[in-house]
């Protein structure tokens, strides 16, 4: 049995005000896959991600992580398997120092202090933030906060990495650095993003959500070649596929 398989069957989520955020969503992501979930604002991407580690409960349907159904009893084990990086790092960094924040997850897992310190050091080094260990989170820049937020999750050694808008709010250099970092993570990766160029580079597979329904699920290259589908889902091709803006020549 692999811990890295994520399977969603007929997932439906209706918010308290009656908004149907997800409807009959089904997919299966296997070991080592890197999958992007894209869609317009309000398509249901963030809602879908929050189902993957039980942050919110489905109205109907099932979620399986490594063949284990997500239930109240399996929640602690599943949260150890699925590492979730949220869109706003300020929500994720709440401890007094960066070190304490990265140590929060491993300590909750019951790891001894020496091992926790080692995990923290490794995770911070991996994201290039080892020098920030003693700093309070409110002294960090946006890019630094994002990198530390990723380290908080990496320190828990998750089998599946789930990230909501990983490159939002980053400058081009920090974005490029982050993409390099994500390329190094060889377990299962699931991203939501409006950064379609990042999707093109990092994710061989893409799922398009539109108004809570899966409109397409397939190879990223094929999906970005389908202009009608993209337009219908309020999306467009990544800039890398749109041709030169000066000479107007297409890259195709």
């Amino acid at each position: 049995m692999s811990h890295h398989i994520v399977e969603v069957k007929n997932l439906r989520h209706v918010y308290a005000d009656g908004t149907v955020a997800l409807d009959t969503v089904s997919f299966r992501i296997t070991h080592g896959e890197s999958v992007a979930i894209i869609g317009a604002n309000g398509a249901g991407k963030s809602t879908l991600l929050q189902h993957l580690n039980g942050c919110i409960t489905a109205t109907s349907g099932e979620v399986f992580i490594g063949h284990i159904p997500l239930t109240r009893n399996t929640l602690p084990a599943i949260r150890r398997t699925v590492g979730m990086v949220f869109q706003y790092p300020d929500d994720q960094l709440f401890m007094p120092t960066v070190f304490e924040d990265v140590a929060f997850g491993p300590r909750n897992q019951g790891l001894p202090e020496e091992l926790t310190a080692e995990r923290v050091r490794e995770a911070l080094e991996l994201v290039g933030a080892a020098h920030l260990a003693s700093k309070p989170p409110y002294h960090l820049s946006g890019g630094e906060k994002k990198r530390v937020a990723i380290a908080t999750v990496l320190a828990m050694s998750p089998d599946v990495l789930v990230m909501d808008e990983p490159t939002s709010g980053l400058d081009p250099f920090a974005r490029r650095q982050l993409m390099g970092l994500l390329r190094e993570f060889h377990h299962t990766k699931i991203f939501t993003s409006h950064d379609l160029d990042m999707v093109l580079e990092l994710c061989p597979r893409t799922i398009i959500l539109h108004e809570g329904i899966i409109m397409a699920d397939g190879a990223t290259a094929d999906i970005f070649a389908n202009d009608h589908l993209l337009a219908a889902c309020r999306l467009e091709k990544p800039f890398a596929l749109q041709g030169c803006p000066v000479c107007r020549t297409s890259t195709n």
Partner: peptide, 22 residues
Amino acid sequence: QRAERIHTTMLSRGFTGQFHGQ
């Protein structure tokens, strides 16, 4: 809303109601 989001991120990292400080 932020408080709710913070609680969610804490739960995601295995928080069970106790802080394990150094």
